[in-house]
Design a protein around this nucleic acid. Structure first.
Lengths: 263, 263
DNA sequence: ACCTGAACACCGTTCAAGT
DNA sequence: ACCTGAACACCGTTCAAGT
């Protein structure tokens, strides 16, 4: 048999659901393929060998575009935020913040394990930057001092991330069928407290989206209060009640002289 | 200062990091050794082979006590919460919540990658349960309806988790020396906006502990408002202003009939 | 009853060699 | 210039066999 004929045969047979062979693999294709593989296999199933195969290439070829798998994950993280940076409709600042929070959650939920992919990486990609810019514009227009804006965006971002990580963890357990059992474990043996049982079932049976609205709503309440306090006329004498346990140092937070770097 | 529940340290062992050979490896020893190895190597360096070696045993021996590495990680997650369940001092409910939030953060930060270990697992261990009980007691005494208590604890928990995950991610980058470079990337090219530059540097140079207080403070503001609204006398006629974009359905959240699942 | 040795089916990454 | 083949140093997990 002739070797040329055999080679052609092999190429034709192996192109089922894969890329047209050898179109000079580009960086963006790798990221796109990685996200597709993420949806198919999950973060734990995302390997360089499988990703290579899905792009009709061998694993080591990926190292032409990324120095390590971690660098690829960073690029994926920024790519996942792409849909968040579309223009935000006009409106009150708190509605705009809620709007962006919803969009961020939706973007993280749009792909399997999306929250975990974004979580570790201190992303510095273009979409991350655009999202920050949008948030800062909203906060500046609202009247927040610049010294507080970064604190606000980090707080909101951390909440959204924590919520979606747990939401997708529950989704992962549900897919395995282990969720109903785990939920049963969490509520079992709570006979001593009607309050605890009601609290747990009410939380676990609720729509995650509604719980998310509740959580962001709490943060927005706090932000509205901060804004009112700072724009209010100077309080007369002793208006400073000992009502709150001093969550922050009264005014806008400033840079501290020491970068604490605990173990 | 946080009263750390010490005294759980094994008295007999702790030679040069390894156990005295062959003392019939117990389940608790495995968890303890795993956490020690976590501190030494990080979550990615925590392997069954290394853990076995640190316990003077071969890797497969661990499967006598845990059906999988994931089950071991679940046990570790609950173990990490051990120091959180000590009694909470008397005081106003919001100070007690802040106290528990601080203790949870401290517990997660106490071991390398602690937040990531706890994040994925929907823990159902004894310490998790005790922590929930403590939170429910505080919320019940404060006057929160049982239907809302689970929502509140989840919201606070998600924020603490998101914050500490990012805090430890930054610590990981700092250890590699990549943090200063990454921080530079994040602030670079922001010449067009003084506001953005101030916001970013003010956030990244700040003490993470102070940013944490700020974030929990926002949540507590929202909770105080919810509590005042629900215990206030019925509003006269049209007191319901269109001030907020309806973050939650007015009263206590209940199970909803539809699970919205936008793309 | 408790643990080991050896094996299975994988990983991320490197690098000389091919085309 | 771009990719492969083969290899290195690992993984989690299984299971017959040892003691």
């Amino acid at each position: 048999m002739v070797t040329v004929a055999a080679g052609v045969d092999n190429i034709e047979k192996t192109t089922a659901g894969k890329r047209e062979h050898a179109a000079l693999l580009r960086r963006a294709d790798v990221v796109e393929g990685a996200i597709a593989l993420l949806d198919a296999e999950g973060l734990d199933g995302l390997t360089t060998r499988k990703l290579g195969a899905s792009l009709d290439v061998r694993g080591p070829a990926l190292y032409r575009h990324f120095p390590s798998k971690e660098a690829l994950l960073d690029a994926m993280a920024d790519r996942l935020l792409e849909s968040v940076v579309a223009p935000v409709p006009d409106g009150p600042w708190d509605e705009q913040l809620m709007f962006l929070a919803r969009r961020l959650r939706a973007a993280l939920l749009a792909h399997r394990d999306g929250a975990r992919v974004v979580a570790g990486t201190y992303v510095a990609g273009p979409n991350t930057r655009l999202l920050e810019d949008a948030l800062f514009r909203i906060l500046e227009a609202a009247g927040f001092p610049a010294e507080q804006a970064g604190w606000v965006t980090l707080t909101c971002g951390h909440y959204v991330l924590g919520h979606t990580i747990e939401e997708q963890a529950q989704a992962r357990l549900s897919a395995t069928g282990a969720w109903t059992e785990r939920k049963h474990d969490l509520v079992r043996g709570r006979a001593e407290s009607e309050y605890a049982r009601t609290a747990l079932t009410s939380a676990f049976d609720a729509d995650p989206g509604e719980r998310f609205e509740f959580g962001v709503g709490l943060l927005l309440d706090g932000l509205r209060r901060r804004l009112l306090d700072s724009t209010a006329p100077p309080p007369a004498a002793d208006a400073r009640t000992a009502d709150a346990p001093a969550p922050a140092r009264d005014g806008a937070p400033g840079a501290c002289d020491d970068g604490g770097d605990g173990t």
